[in-house]
Amino acid sequence: MTTFLLRRVGGMVLTALCLTFVVFFLTNLDPNLEKLAKSEGSVRMSDADVESWLDKNGFSQPLLVRYGQWLGVVPYKHPAPDSDATVTCRAAEPGEEPPTFCGVLEGYWGYSTVFKDRVGGIIGGKIAATGVLMFWVMVVMVPMALLIGVLAGMREGSRTDRSLSTFSIATTATPEYVSGVLFIVIFASSVGGLRWFKGTATSAIDSGVTFENFTLPVLTMALYGMGYIARMTRASMAEVMTAQYIRTARLKGVRFRDVVLKHALRNALIAPFTVIMLQFPWLLTGVVIVETLFNYKGFGWLLVQAAGNNDIDLLLGCSVVAVFVVLVTQLISDIGYVYLNPRIRVR
């Protein structure tokens, strides 16, 4: 088991390095830097001014060196060209003695040009907000999806199956920006007539989560993911129900309820479990859409702000978090698969 874990973690680290490098590369393209120089300096800078600004701030070093500095494995401190000053860690507190290594690994995530604050702190707060949203989404989505999938797959081809399957197909065909719009029109506008919920979730951050301000965003997000998981569960369940060992159990005289609960369920849940865990890179898209649509200032909203305003450090920070979450869920998915499936249980 330990070798397996070590190998997986090793692969994870390698993946993380590759992904962050790609993000670093894409956020530090020359035009981006030029834009940064102009927004930090002045809009009317000449090309030569831009060049010298970049030099002064250490942006003219080779890409790999800068990546190493950002990561925190290459010393950040170095003399600025053409002057006596040194380029130091921009993320350090004003009074603090700048450390030699000043990268993500040491906890220095950089400085946001939009929020004029340290990236680490900003992301932390927003993640907490998004965590609350995700929690409720999971609470609604996973049990519903599994229930629908199991009920539909239990008796393949039945009327229940047909209607539940159609419902799950319909939800997968409705992206968040469609269902969100529909929900707001129906449940939160004067036109729909039903003013049951609020069309925005902004108040949830300040005055706490309520049924009124959170129902629509949670439902919007849960609905899209639910259909997919439900279809997976249904397919898996339907396959298991035609397996010979289910017939064995039935012809042993096991009650139908027990056939489903004791014999089929565990085998049927192996596939959906992996799917749920691998949904995370995908759920992030939903987070961004829903937070934009419902004006909920969480991680997704932050990502939009960072990307829209060329806030390089913040965007990098967001990417690290996103990549980390994705990789951890993949690891959990692998371990869970081994746990659920005794056939590949590591002895």
Binding site: T15, L284, V323
Partner: peptide
């Protein structure tokens, strides 16, 4: 490995990085 790398990338992030005017300049 490459395929998993791309798949592990949150789609929306990739789009925000790839589909930009700066990107077209490069």
């Amino acid at each position: 490995f490459l395929a998993n790398l791309v798949l592990a990338f949150p789609v929306i992030l990739l789009f925000y990085l790839l589909v930009t005017p700066e990107m077209r300049e490069t």
